[in-house]
Simulated scan of single mutants.
Amino acid sequence: MPATRSPRFSRWQQTSSTAHPDGSDLRAPNAWLLMLEGRAPWEYAALLATMPWLKRLQKLPHGDGHPVLVFPGLGAHDVTTAPLRALLDSLGYATQPWGQGFNLGPRAGVLEQCKADLIELHRRHGRKVSLLGWSLGGIYARELAKECPDLARCVVTLGTPFTGHPRATNAWRFFEMVSGHAANDPALMAQIRQAPPVPTTSIYSKTDGVVAWRCSINEPGPLTENIEVQASHIGLGVNPVALYALADRLAQPEGEWTPFDAKGARRWFYKTSEQA
C-alpha cells in the first residue's frame, strides 16, 4: 500500500536554525553515566539467565496474538531488537521489525514507509497494532499513534526523549550528522511532547547514560504512565526488568488499559509516576 505524506510527518523533513526554547535547563547525562552504558552486555546476560526461570514459573504475561511493530533506536538495526522480538513472539505476539536497515533518522520516505507498514499490518491481522519504540524509535511509535489512532492499540517506549530539548542527550550531534536535520525546532518539539490519544507507557532509567531521564516523562493523563527501571540506555531492550514491564503492558486486554501496578514485590524493581 503506498504511503502518503501527512502534515504531521512533513515537519520531520524540515530543518530549522531556531534556538532551543527558553527555560530549558536539561543537560545530557554526565560522563559517569555514559561510562555505565558498558553494563549493557551484562543486562543481556541477565536476560538469558533469568528467562528460563521466568517461563518455568509462568511469571511473564502472555499475549493474545495481536501484532506489534518494533522500531530500533538511532543508528541501530533490527538486529538490536531481535532478542526483544523473540521474547514477544514466544509470548504469543506477532512482531514485525521496522525493516528499513539502520535507523539514521527521519530521512525522506522513512516515516511514510512506517505508516504504510502500520496500515498493512493492521489490514493483514484485522486487529489494532501495538507500537514499540526504543530511543528514537519511540518517537516514530508516538507520532504514528497520533497520525493513525484507529490503528494503534497502545504505545510503549524505551528510553525515548520526547520531551525536553534534543540536546539533553549524548546523541544529538550524531543525529544531526546522520539525518541531515537540525535538532532545534521548537514547533516540532512541542508536537512531539504531546502524548498520543491511546494508552502510552514510557519505560525509562534515571541511570540512562545517553538520554536525560526527564526527557522521557509523560505528563499526567488518563492514558499515560511512566515506569522507572534500573537499566542502561543501550541495555533497555534486553534488560529483564524492563522487558517484564513491557510484557505486562502489552498483555492487557484491548480497551481495558490500567496503569502498571508497582505494589507488592514489584516495588523493589519499579517506580511509577504515582510514586514519584
Score class of each variant (00 low, 15 high):
A247K: 09
Y140D: 09
L131P: 02
T81I: 14
I217M: 11
S6L: 15
A168I: 04
W213H: 09
A231R: 00
A116C: 12
V129E: 10
S16F: 00
R56P: 10
E225F: 03
K206A: 00
F269N: 01
L54V: 05
L131D: 04
V156K: 10
G75H: 08
S179C: 09
A82Q: 12
T95R: 14
V229C: 03
R107E: 10
V156Q: 06
L34V: 04
Y44P: 03
D64V: 11
G65Q: 14
G180E: 01
A183M: 08
P161T: 05
T207G: 00
V70R: 09
P106W: 12
V198R: 12
A82S: 06
A262S: 14
Y140I: 13
R214T: 09
R193E: 14
L121C: 09
R266E: 01
W12S: 06
R214Y: 02
A108T: 11
T157W: 08
G38C: 08
P106M: 08
S202F: 08
R267H: 07
S273V: 00
A245T: 02
E37S: 01
P72A: 13
T169N: 00
Q100T: 15
Q113S: 15
D64Q: 14
R8A: 11
T207S: 00
A108I: 07
W53L: 14
G92W: 13
F260N: 03
E37F: 01
L87F: 11
V178K: 11
V198A: 15
A152R: 03
H233D: 05
N226Y: 05
K59P: 02
T18A: 15
L33E: 01
A242T: 05
K55H: 13
Y270N: 02
E219K: 13
T201Q: 08
G159V: 00
D261P: 02
W42E: 10
S205W: 04
G23E: 08
A45K: 07
S90G: 15
K115L: 08
S216R: 01
V79G: 11
D117G: 09
L48Y: 04
A108Q: 12
A152M: 10
A94E: 14
A251F: 03
R5E: 15
G159P: 00
D22S: 13
A145Y: 07
G137V: 01
P29L: 08
L91H: 11
A28G: 05
P196L: 14
T258A: 14
D117F: 04
V241S: 00
T160S: 03
T272R: 10
C148N: 10
A242Y: 03
A168W: 04
W42G: 10
W268C: 03
V238D: 05
A247Q: 09
I192S: 04
T200F: 11
A195N: 07
P197Q: 11
L104M: 14
K115S: 13
S24Y: 05
S24M: 06
S6R: 15
K59Y: 04
I217Q: 12
R127G: 07
L136Q: 03
E37G: 01
I119A: 13
A182V: 09
D22G: 12
R214G: 02
M35Y: 03
P2N: 15
E225C: 09
T207Q: 00
R267N: 01
G99Q: 15
V198L: 10
E147M: 07
K55P: 02
D261M: 02
G133L: 06
